[in-house]
Nucleic acid binder design. Structure first.
Lengths: 337, 337
DNA sequence: TTGAAAGCGCTAACAC
DNA sequence: GTGTTAGCGCTTTCAA
């Protein structure tokens, strides 16, 4: 058995020896550095091929100091809104030669901190997070590594980290004002878990501020099934409500489906409005009125900005994306048409 | 300005000097290696703190030869089925100390190859892919890097790479047999894009093999909206069909929503069955009959196996996960109850 | 156009 | 317990 088969993996020196050149030349070839004669190039290439040489990324990274890795911390991958965001983010980062490492936090600050630590330990050059409230210790970690951090899904120009997103309070208000303008006054609100989620918290508190304590507020887990159950309970406990404001389209869909099952006319007997504007919301029956959140665009911009920050060391500034109301057929005037 | 401020970033040597110890000791402290006196530990820790020292991952990787990175190539992140899969995969990999880098392929083999190249260049120690058909060149790339590759979303024991998944042909047959058993004979099929997707292709061809050329087959893009449109067209062109078999729940939901809008009773006038069994499918009205695909479990197992392969160099074997029928209320006997 | 040699920042074998 | 020292695999001056 030739020693090549024994040696685990070829390195520059092996290639250099096989090609009868120096390691520097091999390096030049591997990096397409100009100034290598065609003849040498061919010889080195042949040796690379023959020895099945693949440069170790770590060895390159140690010299360049770059990993081309960016980390994203999201509550979960298993939600349409984050999927869309990450899809756009990944696409954009790829354009800039960066790769995306994902880590899920489950809305748990401690877990987020641990995962952030992990991402940084593996060499992430930048971080994308959701919202602005972090575990104590996060900022220290960030400072120690000195890496850029961009927060998304919210717009808070005064926050410690630059935010790229929409105003969650305003988004909730947009939905509430729509219902109000239709004459609805007895409104129930369906919310996802508030714990560990400052965006949801902002939405809820904006509604409270606007509507007072009279709001009928139910908090359920963020799933279609949970929303459907909550709808049943709500209808039994508060038969007088005329509108339902859901803090996420996932919840609005669940409520709508249950209304269909219960024979509650939407919007005839109950108007339903969501926030997110998931693609599928346009196709339900009736199509859901919703507050559109530009998460695709958000992913794209966040990617762009973080890339620039990482590459050109050019810190980014907060950017507000506007949420806007999409009126479809799930909401109608109080008292019916 | 002290020279610390000039120096870009502290390294082991700086810390060693500041603590009055050797670099080896610093390394020991950083790696929690046993056998460091409490006193030394304290001194080094203090120096680490003072100099804001953070070990460079690349430098560690060059010694260990490990990056702890695993890459996943998926068609898109923006689909509930992949989100669930990746969520489970990420969770499992984390348990094994591995991080997940995601890359989207858009069902384009060339793009997949390019992204695979990228993942390998950045040091991915293993790859997770969907399906088994690859661009020519993929296998060469894999062989050159010698990294483990696990294919998911399909079970094909004879494939070049180990597969962890379900039998797509059988899954499609499960759906068809259910409709048949209910007495349906005039069945339409709604499929997502077949190009570049061997799983969809397998499902379609299984149906063709079983039902012959008589199948009314429509191929649409994989979205609720597209399915809704297709449903309208289908109903206009083929009013005699009694059942609709959708190769994905996303499509089934779109068709169902449109039926609701058109006043087509489901399952009274048309039975609808999907494949995937998305969580939301249990809550629609009527709840969707579907073929359950265990994608969460698939992500977990794929993560487990790939981790073992990477860590213990223990190649994995194909594993079949069973798809099974979940009968809900969107399908009923031919001719109505 | 090419080569020699000095690192990059860390780990690990070995010595004390 | 702790220090010395030789690498890990590559890039990058600086000479030739």
């Amino acid at each position: 058995m030739p020693r090549q088969m024994i040696k685990k993996r070829a390195n520059v020196r092996d290639v250099a020896q096989a090609a009868g050149v120096s390691v520097a030349t091999v390096s030049r070839v591997m990096n397409n550095t100009a100034g290598v004669s065609a003849r040498t190039l061919a010889r080195v290439s042949a040796a690379v091929e023959a020895l099945n040489f693949v440069p170790r990324p770590a060895a390159r990274a140690i010299n360049s100091g770059r990993t081309h890795l960016v980390g994203a911390l999201v509550p979960t991958l298993d939600h349409a809104i984050f999927s869309r965001f990450l899809n756009a983010l990944e696409t954009e980062l790829t354009l800039h030669g960066l790769s995306l490492v994902v880590a899920t936090t489950d809305n748990d600050p401690e877990r987020e901190l641990a995962r952030a630590q992990g991402l940084l330990d593996l060499g992430a050059e930048g971080l994308i997070v959701s919202g602005v409230t972090r575990a104590p210790g996060f900022e220290g970690l960030r400072a120690r590594h000195g890496v850029p951090v961009v927060a998304t899904s919210t717009f808070q120009p005064d926050a410690e980290v630059p935010t790229i997103g929409y105003d969650n309070r305003a988004a909730a208000r947009l939905a509430l004002d729509h219902l109000w303008s239709l004459g609805h006054r007895r409104i129930a609100v369906l919310s996802g878990p508030v714990a560990g989620n400052d965006r949801t918290h902002a939405r809820v508190s904006a509604l409270r501020a606007a509507a007072g304590e009279g709001l009928i507020l139910s908090e359920v887990s963020l799933s279609v099934a949970a929303a459907a159950e909550a709808m049943s309970d709500l209808w039994a406990a508060h038969p007088h409500i005329t509108a339902l404001l859901c803090l996420s389209d996932v919840l609005a869909q669940g409520a709508l489906f249950r209304c269909q099952a219960m024979g509650v006319a939407v919007p005839g007997a109950l108007s339903i409005i969501g926030i997110d504007d998931l693609p599928s919301s346009a196709s339900t029956t009736p199509p859901l009125t919703s507050v559109h959140l530009p998460v695709g665009r958000m992913g794209q911009i966040a990617g762009q900005r973080l890339a620039r920050w990482v590459e050109q060391e050019e810190p980014t500034v907060p950017e507000q994306l506007s949420a806007h109301l999409i009126v479809r057929q799930s909401t109608g005037p109080f008292g019916g048409v």
